[in-house]
Design a protein around this nucleic acid. Sequence first.
DNA 1: TTCTGATGCCGGAACGTTCCGGCAAAGGTT
DNA 2: AACCTTTGCCGGAACGTTCCGGCATCAGAA
Lengths: 327, 327
Amino acid sequence: MRGVQTDEPVTILTVAKEAGVSKTTASDALRGSGRVSEATRAAVAQVAERLGYVPNGSARHLRRASTGTIGLHVPEVLTRSSYYMSFVFGVVEQAARHDYDVTLITSGQRRPRPPRVDGLVLGDPLGGDPVVESLMATGLPTVSCERFPGDRQADGVVWSEHAGMLARLLGHLRSAGAARPALIVAGDESDWAASLHRGYLGWCAEQGVAPLVRRVSFDATGDEVRAAARDLLRSEPLDALVCAPAGAATEVAPLLREAGGDVLLASCVDGAATRLADPPITAIDLRPREAGASCAELLFELLAGAAQAGTERVHPIELAVRASTSR
Amino acid sequence: MRGVQTDEPVTILTVAKEAGVSKTTASDALRGSGRVSEATRAAVAQVAERLGYVPNGSARHLRRASTGTIGLHVPEVLTRSSYYMSFVFGVVEQAARHDYDVTLITSGQRRPRPPRVDGLVLGDPLGGDPVVESLMATGLPTVSCERFPGDRQADGVVWSEHAGMLARLLGHLRSAGAARPALIVAGDESDWAASLHRGYLGWCAEQGVAPLVRRVSFDATGDEVRAAARDLLRSEPLDALVCAPAGAATEVAPLLREAGGDVLLASCVDGAATRLADPPITAIDLRPREAGASCAELLFELLAGAAQAGTERVHPIELAVRASTSR
DNA sequence: TTCTGATGCCGGAACGTTCCGGCAAAGGTT
DNA sequence: AACCTTTGCCGGAACGTTCCGGCATCAGAA
C-alpha cells in the first residue's frame, strides 16, 4: 500500500496531526531520537507508513547543514569500464545502506561550482587530472581507492597489495615452469600501475631474473597490447606473460596461441572475460564492487567521526589460478 | 582567488550586507530575477565572487520544492559497460550544463524510499527488472533511452532507427557479395535487441533471403557468442555475420579468421574495440555519449514544461564502414 | 496639479525538518 | 510534605533561499 494520494504533500506536520502528537515528537519517533515512548513511536510509524510519508531531504539537510549525498569520481577510461562500473555499483549500494545518494563527477565536466556533497570517493585517481586536483582541494572528506600519485593523499585511502599479489603470481608462474615471466604494464600516472611495475622489478631482483617489461598507456587498446606482446615474442623466448592493463590478457591470448610455444598467460585484472575465456585465464581479482563498498564505508566513518584523516585500509585481493598458467 | 575563509558560512545575507542591499535584492541580482538595476547586479556579483559565495542547494531546493538532481538508472550488464559508461558520462555532462547533479540508481539496490530526484533517465530499460518498474511507478518525469519493452512508456523516449540502420548494413553486406548474412542477437527483454531482430527478419523477407539467426542472452559472454558463431559455421556456409551484442564481434573475429572462408563481419555496437581491431570492424555507432546527453536534455525540457509527456526523439546513429566488410 | 505606470528596491513569510530547552507528571527518597 | 530525578512530551527558533506583494521615487500624460 502506497498511501493515500492527495495534492497536499505529506509532511511531518501531517503525520503529527494525524498521530495526535507534536511535530517534534513525530520527528523524534520516526528517527529514533529524543525521548519518545515505544507506544508513541509505533503509533507514529504506523501513521507515517499509511500516509506514505517521505522526509523532505532538502529540509532535512538544510537543517543539518548536510547534503545526504557523496560524490564519486571515476576516470573516463573505457578499457576499464567493466572495473569502474563494478566499483561504482559497489559505492552506490553501500551508500544506499547509509541512506546516502551518489552523484557522479566526471573529468569532462566544466562547472563553476563545487559539488554539493558531504564527501568524495575518488576511484583510481590518475595523476595530472585537473578535476581530481580540484576535488582534493575542496577540503571535503575524501577517500581514494589506491593512492594518489604524489605526496598529497586523500583523508582515507583504501589500497591493495598489488606488488605482493603480483609476486605471488610470478612465483606461481615460476613454479609452473616459467623461467622469465614478462610484464606488460602502464605508466606511473596510476599508483596501481606504478606499484605493479615496482613489484615486478623487485621480484626480478630478488629472484635474479632479468626484467622483461613493455610499457603501454593506462587506457591501452587491444592493438597496443598486442603490439607489445608481439615485440616480446620477437625479442626473447617468451615462456610467460603477465598483462596488467584491464582487458589486455584476453586481447593477446589468441596471439600467443598462434605463436605456439606454450606461453603461460595471466592478468592483473580479473573479470568475466578472463573467467570465461578458453582456457580460463589466471588473474588477480581486484574485487571492484567490494572495493567500492569499502571506500564508501570508510568515507561514512570519516563523516561520522568514527575514523580519522590519514586512515588507510587494505582491501584484500585474490589470485584466481586457472588453466592459462598450467602446462 | 577563492574568497576570504571564515568560520561563518557565506550566505546570501552575508553578501547582501556587504553589498549594502537587501537579501532579496542580493538573491535576485545573482539569479537574474526580480527587478534589479545593472549596476546593483554587478556590485552584488562582485561581492559574491570575492566572498566565495556558493548558494546552499538544500535551502534553494527546499524553497523551490525541487532537488536539483536527476536519477539515472542503467542495467548492471558488464559486457555493455563501455556503452553504459559513455552514456552515463553524456548524461552527467548535460546535467551539469543545467546545474543538475546526477544520482545513480542500480537494480541491485534495496532501499526503502523513492529516489530524491526531480526526474529520471532510464538507460536501456530491460523488461522484467522490478527496480525499473518501480521507478516508472513513481510518477516522476521519466525519459528512457529506447522504448520500454511492453505497452507502458516513459514520458519521453529517445530512440534510434536500429532496424533501418541494420537494413542498411545488410544491404552493404549484400553489395559486398554476401548472399546470406547471419545475425547473432539477444532476446526480446531489450527493445533494442527486439527491433534488430525484427528488422533482420523484415529485410530477409523483403530480399527473399532465408533468415540465419542465433539468439544469445543480452549479457552474452565471449564464449556464448563464439559458440553461436561456431554453430553457424557448422550448419551453413557462412559468408557474412552481424553480431548484435556489444563486444561480440571482436570475440568472434579470431574464430572467423581461423575458419577461413573470408566471412564478412560487422557489429551492431561500435566502440574502441571495433574501431581499433585488425582489421577494423564495420559497426553501427550508437553514439552513447550523445544519446545520454539527448535523454538528459529531453528530461530537462519535460521538467521545464518545454516538452510534453509522450514526446519521442530520434537519436541519429551511424554506420561506420570499415575493412571487415570488404573483400 | 493630479494621476498613472514603470523601475527598483524592500521585509515578511514560506518551504519542512531538526535542535534546544522548558515543563508537567509520576515515582522515589528524605 | 517537600525535594529530586526520570520520563515523555511540547513550542519556538533555526537552517538559507525564494516568492510575494508593498512602497517610494521618478517620469510622462492628461
